[in-house]
Nucleic acid binder design. Structure first.
Lengths: 203, 203
DNA sequence: GTTTTTACACTGACTGGTCAGTTCAAAAGC
DNA sequence: GCTTTTGAACTGACCAGTCAGTGTAAAAAC
């Protein structure tokens, strides 16, 4: 019990150190010595806890996307419980995405930087992990179409990808180049797009 | 005359080789030997033509974003000439973006992977280059709002970022995970979002 | 019109440094 | 007393950048 929680704490410190460094510099440019130093542990400890640098990274990916998926799912569920519409659920998920990125910007950076690479060791891990996240959005879209709340023209897989991308990129851009804006500003801009109130003059 | 065109050809071969390899593996994981080998030149030639690996990469970035910006601008201009609306111009730019990504998927991968990193040598190059591309979109949005064609609620910098992100991510996702779809499918899905015909039931 | 020079593009073996991963005896934690 | 961590030394592969030298085409010299 106790020794395992000690391990968990060490691993958490290593995740924390690795995520920041890899987000800034990329996987290959980040050395194991750096990770160990920032985590405040000995290099040997890294290899006692993980088979390799690559394995550490893969587990970090799984860990992070787990958090994101849970947070998106929770936003959707809370909306459903309240009896909210599917568009409201999507809106709530956009906000949950923004909150996540605001809290873990480094993880998001790293995820985006690696996702579309081909021929890398952790490619298959990423595929699984991406599918998990996108599936949550696709489900809500599908329910919306079935309920007649969304247009039947909606192409579910492509729209899900576009929505996720919109949030990801808008949020990263906000963090990197438009720091002065508030989360509400960003949410507002995305909400307007989602509700189709950018073009035309209605309501 | 002759020798300078020889140089240009060599540099083009190096860009071509570098863009693919760096898109697949990332900057640090790609070796200069690999780039030289794939370009079919000796390693020394790389250093004859570029000061360093980093400089080769920065010039590649400038070169690629130049192409993209020109292509977006041209789409906007052609729509204006035809007397099309600003929303039509945005739609045409979405398509131009998709065509670009379809033709140069590796460049897009690499751009997205590097854009939001901090503390890298080419950070300032990226900033300039990003600003060029986003500015084209912002201009059209601004004109649309001024013409009363777009809602005044539209937050121009954030919406521009969101639109660019939407196209970038949807296109990369298409290339990486939904290869069977056509460019028209992707354009259709994004167009629906732009025109706000996802939610609600109108026209 | 043949030889020599010049300028430029390119070559590839080599160097000096870096880094993932190993090893292990000793200490710390529980 | 078992598990976990430490720390420092070590290995061997790998890699950015260098440099003395080669190829060549066109200009200069004769």
């Amino acid at each position: 019990m106790d020794s395992s929680s000690r391990r968990r704490a060490t691993r958490a410190k290593l995740y924390e150190a690795a995520v920041t460094l890899i987000a800034e510099q990329g996987f290959s440019a980040t050395t194991v010595d750096e990770i160990a130093e920032r985590a405040g542990v000995a290099k040997g400890t890294v290899y006692y806890n993980f088979k390799s640098k690559t394995e550490l990274f893969e587990e970090l990916l799984r860990f992070g996307v787990g958090l994101l998926t849970a947070s998106l799912q929770e936003a959707a569920d809370r909306t459903a419980e309240r009896g909210g519409s599917k568009v409201e659920a999507l809106d709530a998920m956009i906000r949950a995405g923004l909150v996540f990125i605001d809290r873990y910007p480094a993880f998001t950076q790293l995820y985006v930087a690696e996702l579309w690479r081909t021929n890398r060791a952790w490619q298959s891990t990423l595929l699984v992990v991406r599918q998990q996240a996108v599936a949550v959005v696709e489900t809500v879209l599908r329910e919306g179409v079935e309920a007649g709340e969304l247009s039947e023209e909606v192409d579910i897989p492509l729209t899900a990808a576009a929505l996720v991308g919109m949030v990801l990129v808008a949020a990263l851009d906000w963090q990197a180049f438009q720091r002065e804006r508030s989360l509400d500003d960003v949410h507002g801009a995305l909400s307007l797009l989602l509700h189709g109130r950018v073009s035309g003059r209605r309501d």
